[in-house]
Amino acid sequence: MIRKDGFVVRDVGGSAVIVPTGARVLDLNGLVVLNDTGRLVWDALSAERSEDELVQCLTDRYDVSPDQARADVDELLQQFADLGIIQYAGQPI
C-alpha cells in the first residue's frame, strides 16, 4: 500500500496534523491528528510498502515486539483505509 497524494502535514507538540487539499477534500472531510507511531507509518507510506515492511519500521524505531508492532500497524492501516488516505496496489486512485 501507499499513501495518496494531496495531503499537507505539519508537526506540533509531538503530534502531526494532516490536511487534505484539492479533490482529496472529498475523501477526507476534516483533518487527521497522528501520534509518533502514526507519523512514522505515514512517512514510510510515501513509497509502496508491504505490511511486513511497516512492522519492520516500528520494530527498528521502538522497543516493541513484532507482534505488538503488527497489531499497531494493522490498526493504523485500518484507520487510514477508513479515512480514505491510503490506497492498496491495484486500487483506483
Binding site: 499537507v8 490536511v19 484539492g22
Partner: peptide
C-alpha cells in the same frame, strides 16, 4: 484547500 502550497502556508 485548492492549493497545497497555500494550505501549507495557512498551517504555518
Amino acid at each position: 484547500y485548492w492549493d497545497a502550497a497555500l494550505v501549507g502556508a495557512a498551517m504555518g
